[in-house]
């Protein structure tokens, strides 16, 4: 048994030290936003935020998470009250099949937390580890810019919940 902090809540999970975080999130905690894509850390669809940094949860074993804060897309906002990053992706209609989008949003969120006004170049460089086979890249780019503007004007961001700076 170990304690895992996810989205501000502590969970007691029964997992081996070498179990990837993604499996625990999806199978034990039923947090299904992070997706299993390649399982090799090569596609980005499993990305979550750990202590403010975007990590690939399919290649992060539980042994690395002691005392750390995990944030998943569920921790950013809800259907009723989407976070700026989620609103921006909806408003730009940035998803087609949508499989890669939670990972994209999480890395974009981590980027915006440390750089509130990223340039096009910086967004492209940051999102480079993420694959999207539908080809909505231009909309994703616009959505990240839009999220940056939304965060700038939003008075309260639910994103602050559970994510360390």
């Amino acid at each position: 048994m170990m304690t895992l902090k996810v989205n501000g809540r502590e969970h007691q999970v029964d997992a081996e030290a070498d179990t990837p975080l993604l499996y625990v999130l999806r199978d034990d905690l039923k947090l299904n936003a992070a997706k299993y894509g390649c399982g090799l850390g090569q596609c980005g669809s499993c990305t979550v935020i750990v202590d403010g940094k975007a990590v690939l949860s399919c290649v992060v074993p539980m042994v690395l998470l002691e005392g750390k804060q995990v944030t998943t897309l569920e921790g950013l906002g809800t259907i009723a009250e989407p976070a700026p990053i989620q609103r921006a992706f909806m408003e730009e209609q940035a998803a087609q099949c949508g499989y890669c989008i939670p990972g994209m949003m999480m890395r974009a969120q981590a980027l915006l937390q440390k750089n509130s006004k990223p340039t096009d170049e910086q967004i492209r460089a940051e999102l480079e580890p993420h694959l999207c086979r539908c080809g909505t890249h231009m909309r994703i780019l616009r959505a990240v810019h839009r999220a940056a503007r939304l965060m700038d004007t939003a008075d309260v961001s639910p994103a602050a919940n559970g994510s360390a700076r």
Partner: peptide, 23 residues
Amino acid sequence: PVGASIYTAACASCHEGGRPLPY
């Protein structure tokens, strides 16, 4: 054991995957 756990989750999936280089 810590190094072994990290290896299993973070490295083995590719390095013991039997998938040839370069991918």
